[in-house]
Design a protein around this nucleic acid. Structure first.
Lengths: 198, 198
DNA sequence: TCAACTCACATACGATGCGTATGTCCGATG
DNA sequence: CATCGGACATACGCATCGTATGTGAGTTGA
C-alpha cells in the first residue's frame, strides 16, 4: 500500500466516499443523510468530502453521474441484443423500468437528483439514458420505422413514461405482479410512434 | 374582524400559512425554505405552523393537496369541453403539460413532492390528476375506443410522460417553441392506445 | 540528501434551522 | 364571573452544514 502515488490515493478516497454516499443516499435520502456519518463510514471525515467534491451537492452529482453511466451501459447492452432497432428501443424502455426498481436508482437518480440538481438534461453527465434513446429514435425515424416526430420530445416522453411507471411499480404492494403490466402498457404506448403498425 | 368564530380564525391562519408556503416552496424549494421567514411573511411565528400542521412536511402535504385539487379541477373542466372522450383525454394531457410550466406545480408537486412525501399515489390527496385520467381511460376501454390494457398502468405512463415532458419544456431555453413539440409528441404517443387508428 | 513547499485531509468554529417544551392570552362554557 | 381549553408565541436544545485553520506525509529542486 505504500507504493501508491498521491493521485491514486485521491481516486481511492473519492471512490470510498461515493460508495458510502450511494448507500446513505439510497437508504435515507439526500436531505436526511448526514455528512458526518457518511464520511465516518468511509473511514474519513468531512474534510475529505469538501476537499474532493466542494459541497454536499457535489457529492450527489458525482454519485448520480456514476449510477447514470452504469444504467446507460446496461441499457445499451440490452438494446443491442434485440433483433432489430425497434425491438431494441422497446427492450431499453423495459430495462429502464426494471432498473428503476432498485432503490439506488429510484431514490437517488429519479427523486433526489431532479429535486436537488435540477433538470436531468442539464446535468454534466447529460443524462445518458435520455441521450441513447433519443439517438435510437432518430435512427428509427430516418429509416422510416417511426413517424416523423421531434426525437427529443419523443425521447423525453418515453423515458418519462418508463421511469414514472417504475416508481409506481416499486411503490406498489406486489411489484412482481405489477411489473409486467407496466411493461405491456409501455409497449402499447410506444406503438403509437410506429409509422404503420400491424 | 371581531365577529369571527375561532374555527374561522383557524382556517384563516391555515390559509395564510399555505399561501406563504406556496410562494416560498416554489421560489426556494422545500429544503431551502426557512420556516422562520415563511411564517413571518404570513404575520405569524413557527408556533402557528407546528400547531396547525405538525411539522414542515405536514405543511408541504397541505400545499400539495391544494395545488393538486386545483390542477384536477382545471383538467376536468378542459377535458369536458372536448367533442368526445378520446379528445378529452388528449386535452387533459396537454393541459397537464401546460400546467406543469408553472413554477408552483413544477417545483412543489413534481420535484419536491415525490422527493419528500414519497410516491404520489400514496398521498392522502390520492393524486387527483392520476385518478381522473385513469377513470377516463377505463371508460374509453369499456366503449372499445382504447385497447384493453391495464388502466392504472396506462394512466401512470400517460401522466408520467406528460409531466416529464413538461419539466423538459420548462427547463428549455425557449419554452414557447418547445411546448407544441411536446404536445404533438404526446398525441402521437397516446395514439398507441387506440384500438384502431385512422 | 535535506530543506522548503504543496496538498490531501483532519480539527475547530460559527451560523442556521428544525422540533419541542413552556408560557400567555383570548374566547368559550357553565 | 370564574374556570378551562386551545391557538399561538417564546425560549431552548440539538443536529448539521460550510469554512477557516491546523498538520503531517509526499514531492521537488539544489
Amino acid at each position: 500500500m505504500a507504493g501508491k502515488r498521491r493521485s491514486e490515493m485521491m481516486e481511492e478516497t473519492r471512490a470510498k466516499l461515493i460508495k458510502a454516499a450511494r448507500r446513505a443516499f439510497a437508504e435515507k435520502g439526500y436531505a436526511a443523510a448526514s455528512m458526518d456519518e457518511l464520511t465516518a463510514e468511509a473511514g474519513l471525515t468531512r474534510g475529505a468530502l469538501y476537499h474532493n467534491f466542494g459541497d454536499k451537492r457535489g457529492l450527489l452529482q458525482a454519485v448520480v453521474n456514476q449510477i447514470d453511466a452504469e444504467m446507460a451501459a446496461r441499457a445499451l447492452a440490452i438494446g443491442n441484443q434485440a433483433k432489430n432497432d425497434w425491438e431494441g428501443l422497446l427492450a431499453e424502455g423495459a430495462a429502464y423500468i426494471e432498473m428503476a426498481l432498485e432503490p439506488e436508482v429510484q431514490r437517488i437518480v429519479l427523486l433526489d437528483g431532479p429535486a436537488f440538481l435540477g433538470d436531468p438534461s442539464r446535468w454534466p453527465s447529460q443524462d445518458s439514458c435520455l441521450q441513447t434513446t433519443r439517438q435510437k429514435l432518430e435512427e428509427l425515424i430516418a429509416q422510416g420505422t417511426v413517424r416523423p416526430v421531434d426525437a427529443e420530445a419523443a425521447a423525453r416522453l418515453l423515458t418519462g413514461a418508463a421511469l414514472n411507471a417504475a416508481l409506481w411499480v416499486a411503490a406498489s404492494d406486489h411489484p412482481q405482479d405489477v411489473l409486467p403490466k407496466a411493461v405491456e402498457a409501455f409497449r402499447v404506448l410506444a406503438g403509437g410512434l410506429l409509422a404503420n403498425r400491424g
